[in-house]
């Protein structure tokens, strides 16, 4: 187990190193920097380059970036001068993490319930309705759902606030629901099929032969067997949330890193783009590792090699 975790950590560090290296050199060949402004005098340009360390040889820039990244220092933003990238990210990360975690928890819990209900009502109206809902959930991108929510509950029937963050819980409701729809749909479909498979398995037949009632079989055998594997979905769903949250933060004016990432692209604020990229990749990898370890602890079938 420990050996496995160590192996995974090594792979993770290696992947992060690749990500940092790739982003650094990609940024070098990216067309255009904010310093392309023709109004800048050569002196001012040289001054700027010194400030950002761009006058050093490339390998020196790379090394110092690498060393900085290890210490959580991703340089200074081009856009907001004198603001360090880590500080910008540090301010905004908690907002994004809060939104993401809330959406993931709401989505998974809703999915577990709907999937189980769907499987137990296999092929009847309840199952059909939930089936349509979950198919819609995976077909409608979260940002479109966000836009529709804003239109319906912000403008048409103004029930919830549609912008901002941190003032009230009600602000979080619409963006959370928009983001939670897809994880909820994925979980519902997954749990449904796992549970149907479980209910037709030999061990459920054996449980029936023991004289257990349907309810006991579902509670003691089917639930556990079909819900544990949901953990393996958390990684991919978290990745989906990253994508969704950038646009959702934009739509609902939420000051998270997603919104900052989006605004840094047209202004070619490379230090911010690079820093966010690395933080995103690290977050996703930690998330996947944690769920893999959790799966191994909770699911006796999985043994880490």
């Amino acid at each position: 187990m420990w050996k496995y975790i160590l192996k995974r950590l090594v792979l993770m560090v290696f992947t992060l190193f690749l990500v940092i290296t790739a982003t650094f050199f990609l940024m070098q060949i990216m067309p255009g920097t904010p310093f392309n402004n023709p109004k800048l005098t050569p002196q001012a340009l040289a001054q700027l380059k010194t400030t950002y360390g761009l006058d050093l040889p490339l390998w020196q820039q790379y090394l110092s970036y690498l060393v900085g990244a290890v210490h959580g220092d991703f340089g200074t933003s081009f856009q907001y001068q004198n603001q360090s990238v880590s500080m910008l990210i540090g301010q905004r990360l908690p907002v994004s993490a809060h939104l993401g975690a809330q959406a993931l928890v709401v989505g998974i819990i809703a999915g577990l319930i709907m999937g189980a209900v769907s499987a137990r009502n296999k092929n009847n109206k309840i199952d059909g309705t939930l089936g349509i809902l979950s198919t819609l959930g995976i077909s409608v991108p979260s940002f479109i759902l966000g836009i529709v929510f804003v239109y319906l509950f912000g403008f048409k029937w103004p029930i919830f606030p549609v912008s901002g963050w941190g003032d009230s819980f009600s602000q979080t409701i619409l963006p959370t629901l928009a983001l939670a729809a897809s994880p909820a749909a994925i979980t519902t479909r997954f749990v449904r099929s796992e549970m149907i498979e479980s209910l037709s398995s030999d061990y459920v037949q054996l449980a029936k032969a023991k004289g257990l009632s349907d309810k006991e079989i579902v509670n003691k055998h089917a639930y556990r067997n079909s819900m544990i594997p949901v953990l393996t979905l958390v990684g991919p769903m978290a990745a989906g949330l990253l994508t969704g949250s950038t646009l959702i933060e934009q739509i609902f004016s939420i000051p998270g890193i997603g919104q900052q990432f989006v605004t840094s692209i047209p202004s070619k604020d490379f230090p911010v783009i690079m820093g966010t990229t690395i933080v995103y990749a690290a977050m996703l990898m930690v998330m996947i590792l944690i769920t893999d370890i959790l799966t191994a602890i909770i699911d006796p079938r999985v043994r880490l090699q």
Binding site: S201, D202, Y203, Q205, L206, A207, K208, A209, K210, G211, L212, S213, K220, H221, R224, N225, I228, D299, P300, R301
Partner: peptide
């Protein structure tokens, strides 16, 4: 069905064919 449940596993029990799939892997 409820009456069956008091018969199954109690008065009439069954040994299944495949031991690899007949036991609940999570219990």
């Amino acid at each position: 069905e409820e009456e069956w449940q008091s018969v199954r596993g109690n008065e009439i029990a069954m040994i299944f064919q495949d031991p690899m799939t007949s036991l609940d892997p999570t219990m």
